[in-house]
Design a protein around this nucleic acid. Structure first.
Lengths: 162, 162
DNA sequence: TTTATCCGGATAAAATATATCCGATTAAGG
DNA sequence: CCTTAATCGGATATATTTTATCCGGATAAA
């Protein structure tokens, strides 16, 4: 059970997009260079973020990606679900309906106890991710990281958008 | 992000193995028939359960699988980790060390804020699965299911081991 | 000895994740 | 208007993982 690489990439990228001045954008190419990830594949992931309404894109010269809403309105869950899709990790194929002692479908309106338990576990997982906003992540990073590095990144962003 | 089918299969199977009389066992073939899943592939999953110490196997004629410990000492987390392995779902590839503003490795002794957030979320997920024992699952199933079906399953097990 | 079963490895097919490319479209600027 | 830069969307290709099968060997009961 693994999350795609796009989840890591896009979370870091969204954190950095918070530094982009209003009205500007960073191109997928620039983002790929910044993190040394394949640009064509990253572009696909950015499309997923865009369709989910997390970032918005500006086409044409000088265009690029920017956050579609404030950092306190974007959670890690938003990003994970944008990249990974909505389907749960545990797949219930209703094998209780199979075999010599299989239950009738009409007796299976409620999910079985096993599926319920996994659904609950995934719910608390999602709750934990939902509780983490980009704002909180960035605040922690600012508190833990060196001011020099922060300035370095901010200046790199400035060069890209100017 | 998906769990393998083996997780569903093996959880149901472990629940049923609780009905096996002491000293007996159910063959992989019988288990595969009961749930209509591919027997050769199921056998592989059963080996994972065995290596994790969840079930024990008896070779030779009349052999098969049985639980290696009590139902109150087996949790859903035990089964998931036996099948899926120990690696976390979120893969941190330390992309903060990449690119023009990459951090030096010596400044990355602590995990980044993003990796930490995902680690915490997975922790509560595991906690939830750890809190669910096979005993609890089976008790719920007995309470929710029909007594007739329970007897039907118990009789099927009897036929297999006799 | 025969039969039933687990064990382990090799192999293969199918599905998914990862990655690349290209034409269409859109917008800025001369 | 035209050129250029950039995203978008689709088609395609590669790598990895999941799913599945098979077989020879070991083991134990009848």
């Amino acid at each position: 059970m693994q999350l795609g690489k796009g989840v890591e990439w896009c979370t870091h990228i969204c954190g950095m997009l918070a530094l982009v001045p209003t009205g500007k954008g960073l191109s997928a190419e620039a983002l790929a260079d910044f993190f040394e990830v394949p640009s064509a594949y990253l572009a696909k992931q950015m499309q997923l973020l865009r369709r989910a309404g997390i970032v918005e894109s500006v086409r044409g010269k000088g265009g690029g990606y920017r956050l579609a809403r404030g950092v306190d309105a974007i959670t890690l869950l938003d990003i994970v679900q944008a990249i990974e899709g909505p389907s749960p990790a545990f797949r219930c194929t209703e094998i209780r309906q199979n075999g010599p002692c299989g239950l009738k479908r009409k007796d299976c309106k409620a999910p079985c106890e096993i599926a319920s338990a996994f659904a609950e576990a995934e719910e608390v997982y999602r709750d934990a991710l939902r509780a983490k906003t980009l704002a909180a992540i960035n605040a922690e990073a600012a508190a833990n990281g060196s001011p020099e590095h922060f300035i370095e990144v901010a200046q790199w962003v400035q060069r890209q958008v100017s």
